[in-house]
């Protein structure tokens, strides 16, 4: 039976958007899935489980134009071990920018890891406007692509998908400003305070 291990490599995994994407994937995948967060202390335990799964899906955000350190450190530990069975590795990546292709470098890094370490590379879903899309009516587009990702992995017909908010960039700038203003307000921080040009008060 095909099973997918979903590993959340977000630095804020328990309260991350990546967790929400993983939940969606589990909902749409027709086989069994298991979800776990990558933590600094659980790499060995996660790696031990790999042989039980046909597929491994990494879910993570774009950090500084590439893969987050949480994932980088896990991959470095993974390359020290050869599991009895190497699952096919797929990737679900999101960035806060509207262009899903800003995720391309991180995807290429994952492909390179797979090539260097003999893991088959599977499907990719690149999400743009990933910080906000979950809380907008555009979630229907996201759902459709996550469904396609899940189906491609289930059928082993691996493909590359991408999704973002279907709005002009100028409108995205306005929408993202409102999103961040509201975020700041919840923390008692005004727009003017958030726009400070000072770094460490200087």
């Amino acid at each position: 039976m095909d099973k997918v291990l979903i590993l959340n490599a977000s630095p804020r995994a328990p309260r991350s958007n990546s967790k929400e994407y993983a939940k969606l994937f589990s909902k749409f995948y027709h086989g069994k899935t298991e979800y776990l967060d990558i933590k600094r202390t659980n790499h060995a335990a996660l790696i031990e489980k790999l042989s039980d799964f046909s597929d491994l899906l990494f879910v993570f955000p774009l950090y500084a134009d590439s893969i987050p350190v949480t994932l980088l450190n896990f991959l470095k530990d993974l390359e020290q071990v050869t599991p009895a069975r190497k699952p096919t590795i797929s990737v679900l990546i999101n960035c806060g920018f509207i262009e899903p292709q800003q995720n391309d470098i991180a995807v290429e890094m994952m492909r390179l890891f797979c090539k260097e370490n003999g893991y088959p590379f599977g499907s990719v879903l690149k999400i743009g406007s990933g910080e906000a899309i979950l809380s907008t009516p555009f979630q229907v587009f996201l759902n459709a692509k996550v469904k396609k990702l899940a189906r491609s992995i289930f059928l082993h017909r691996y493909q590359v998908f991408q999704v973002t908010m279907p709005i002009p960039k100028r409108m995205f700038l306005k929408a993202s400003s409102i999103y961040w203003e509201e975020y700041g307000k919840r923390n008692g921080c005004s727009k003017e305070e958030m726009q400070t040009m000072l770094i460490e008060g200087k």
Partner: peptide, 26 residues
Amino acid sequence: KYGGYDTVMKTILERSIPVQQAFIRL
């Protein structure tokens, strides 16, 4: 590492986001 910065440099690059604002521009 894997075509990107290895852990030490990547860690400080990720910790440097205070030099940016949340707000987005073109």
